[in-house]
Amino acid sequence: MAKWDKEEYKRGLKKGLPIGLGYLYVSVAFGMMAAAGGLSPISALVISMTNLTSAGQFAGIGLIFNSAAYIEIALTVFIINIRYFLMSLALSQKLSVSMGRFKKMIIAFGITDEIFTMASLEKQPLSYEFMLGLISLPYIGWGLGTYLGAATTMLFPPLMQDALGIALYAMFIAIIVPAIRESRAVLVTTGIAVSLSCVFKYAPYLKDISSGFAVIIATLIAAGTAAYLFPIKEES
């Protein structure tokens, strides 16, 4: 067993800090939505601590408020989260080879869009300590924000509650745009993905496809095309 590498953990914490702070915003919005629908702050907190995902949670509590059937909740949330299959697969290629299965099971819980992207940007193999560090602050921020949002929902003016809706997307944009600036391949990838996503939103027939599936199909086509046009030569 390798020793606990404190420096790696600290490095991860540092990279996770901006994500954690960003999650505070987004999860406040989730907490408020949960409270507005009648969930207690504790229930909202439990959902956030056991799910650690944005779109899936929003969809899930929406269904709970409508007293949806279990199978409907399971399918909808699962479809929204299928994208994690791809991320988990991609991450399996970057984790340090010596990492045991139990550690991987812990890391797996922390795969979110932002954490995954941040980890993907690392040049070296990802250590267990680095990944734990990277996940720590986003996890705390996500839980804390949820509780605060649910417990203090009355304190926020409605106009502020409305404005918080854009926080998650602004974070996404903050990740994508600098990458687009650096790489034409990434520009093409996101260009295709965004175009397809718009088609799925507006085109007749296609717009009936659930948003979770739309994201998956758009991702498969966009990343598939980019990989064909801009293959990445192996460095090591």
Binding site: A55, R83, L86, M87, L89, A90, Q93, D113, F116, T117, S120, I166, Y169, A170, F172, I173, I175, I176, A179, I180, A185, V186, T189, T190, G191, I192, A193, V194, L196, S197, C198, K201, Y202, S211, A214, V215, A218, T219, A222, A223, G224, A226, A227, Y228, F230, P231, I232, E234
Partner: peptide, 22 residues
């Protein structure tokens, strides 16, 4: 091909999740 594909996945996911929903 698959390695490159996986490399582009995050950008495709974020792009498709953000637009036009934002």
């Amino acid at each position: 091909y698959i390695r490159s594909f996986l490399h582009y996945v995050p950008y495709a996911v974020l792009g498709a999740m953000t637009f036009p929903h934002v």
